[in-house]
Deep mutational scan, measured.
Amino acid sequence: HNLTITQGKLFFHYNPKLCLSEIHKMEEVSGTKGRQERNDIALKTNGDQASCENELLKFSYIRTSFDKILLRWEPYWPPDFRDLLGFMLFYKEAPYQNVTEFDGQDACGSNSWTVVDIDPPLRSNDPKSQNHPGWLMRGLKPWTQYAIFVKTLVTFSDERRTYGAKSDIIYVQTDATNPSVPLDPISVSNSSSQIILKWKPPSDPNGNITHYLVFWERQAEDSELFELDYCLKGLKLPSRTWSPPFESEDSQKHNQSEYEDSAGECCSCPKTDSQILKELEESSFRKTFEDYLHNVVFVPRKTSSGTGAEDPRPSRKRRSLGDVGNVTVAVPTVAAFPNTSSTSVPTSPEEHRPFEKVVNKESLVISGLRHFTGYRIELQACNQDTPEERCSVAAYVSARTMPEAKADDIVGPVTHEIFENNVVHLMWQEPKEPNGLIVLYEVSYRRYGDEELHLCVSRKHFALERGCRLRGLSPGNYSVRIRATSLAGNGSWTEPTYFYVTDYLDVPSNIA
């Protein structure tokens, strides 16, 4: 807008934040220059609390790290170098490059900038070799853009010569660093050979998330399962459950009422301010606690030095998902009996873990797994792929695949051998790939016309006998059925096997 004052003059007093240069501009645009008398524009009460600059400061050096910015700028000295009290560095987070010096300023003089007072450097006698002032900004957020400017702080001049310097606002972004852990990993099994893994992005990506790394490792069953005799009275049979499938998407929606109208769909109840505040506090606490764990609990591995020492970490090797089922080394339970199943799973520490690289999504279907087997899954978020990966501390989750139908069934015939004193040795093959492992066998036998009897055969007993022995049988026709019990439950009964026990007292003698 054009402003013209045809008559009258300007009068400025007691404006401590208004620089004289701005008042002189007002004289020019209003056409009143030359009308004012000496005392109409006070030299001592206008701009006496402001830094009124008329020179431009330029930054000469900028260096960044993930949490620091090192700045240096060209030296500046007023005509009387004693008038320079120091520099004021202003900075704040700036997602967009549209910041002005006066953003967030209120009537009390406060604003949204963080201000650092910096002492002037030592003055050199040689004007050509003056030290460049600077400042190291610490405690910054990774991968965050900051708006920065600097200006001088000078003393009051009796001659009211307006001098000083100020830089333009520059924008500097800190470097990326390792992201925080992925949030809320959930693993479920939808079949006997697959596990579905879902997660949420890290709360602090500290860069642009480029991919996720998912490692999985087959877990050995508890050692007590191999040692305890679950045929003993009072000892509860062990059981394991597989990871249940995901709930429906509708039930997972946030901010939804727990109660549904019987007449149909209901609208979600909005969260109160107290609920939102509580969630923010919980989120802040979780982030602080995660940072504490990362800094205190997890110790970084030592990389190899120039002395030739090897990095103890196993090298990563990509495998196809079809090879995942046989990740671990199978060892027989008892070496003397080769027909026992290889369900003991000690994992070799030198073995390469299978892994998958996930790009542009937060889910993965891990296939080719062994049925009813526990897996430990390790999830890392990465925001750099080359020249070397920059990934987060791992988040861990466990899951067990679903049982395989008929995996616990005894394959092959049940054979028998009759000894003296009416002892019958029953023999059968253990299931080759049971659900988890076989903890015991149930032997059901009966003599024709009598009630059915049951015998429990422990895992250890089966390994020693290759089956079991029935003792003290009365003469007669017998039928026997056997079924295995694994961590997933009972298998199917075998087809009945028949044998006849004679009275050993009636056996004919070869003595003449």
Score class of each variant (00 low, 15 high):
Q252E: 14
K406A: 14
S363N: 05
G472V: 07
S203W: 04
N339F: 09
S367A: 15
P496Y: 13
T303Q: 10
S268Y: 05
W216Y: 11
V501F: 08
M427T: 14
V296L: 06
L235M: 11
P270E: 04
F355V: 12
W242Y: 05
P403A: 07
E249L: 09
A463K: 07
Y500V: 12
N339M: 07
P434Y: 03
I482T: 01
N490M: 05
D250T: 09
V439C: 07
P338I: 11
N360F: 08
A263P: 10
C382Q: 00
P346L: 12
M402V: 14
T502D: 04
E442T: 09
S223Y: 12
P475C: 06
Q256V: 09
S243Q: 09
E279H: 12
A263W: 02
V480S: 02
E433T: 11
T485K: 10
L293G: 01
E420G: 04
L505A: 10
S392L: 02
P332V: 06
R218V: 03
G412E: 07
T272D: 08
Y396T: 13
Q275I: 11
E433F: 15
E265M: 06
R319Q: 12
P403G: 03
S268P: 14
E495S: 09
L487Q: 09
A488M: 08
M427G: 14
E310G: 09
L440M: 08
G374P: 10
C231E: 02
E378A: 12
K361E: 10
L505N: 09
A463F: 12
R400I: 07
P403D: 06
L369W: 01
E227Q: 09
I410H: 05
V480K: 00
P314S: 11
L225I: 10
F298T: 10
E388C: 14
A463M: 11
S251E: 12
A399E: 10
L321M: 11
V424T: 03
T303L: 04
T343M: 07
L321K: 14
T303E: 10
T303Y: 15
Y375W: 01
R218D: 05
L505H: 08
H425I: 15
Y230R: 10
T502W: 05
Q252F: 14
T343D: 05
F289W: 12
P244Q: 12
V297A: 07
R400V: 09
H352R: 06
A405F: 12
V424L: 12
M427H: 04
E404S: 07
H294A: 15
K287S: 06
R318F: 14
G325K: 15
G306W: 09
S304R: 07
P245W: 12
Y478I: 01
E217D: 13
Q219V: 06
E442Y: 15
L455A: 12
L364P: 00
V324L: 09
E442K: 11
M427L: 07
Y230L: 11
T241F: 14
T333M: 13
V423Q: 07
A336W: 06
F246Q: 11
E282R: 10
E282C: 10
V331F: 10
C267F: 14
L277W: 12
G476P: 00
D311M: 11
F499R: 01
M427Y: 01
L437Y: 14
V345I: 09
A484R: 00
L470I: 12
S320H: 12
L473K: 01
Q219A: 06
H454M: 15
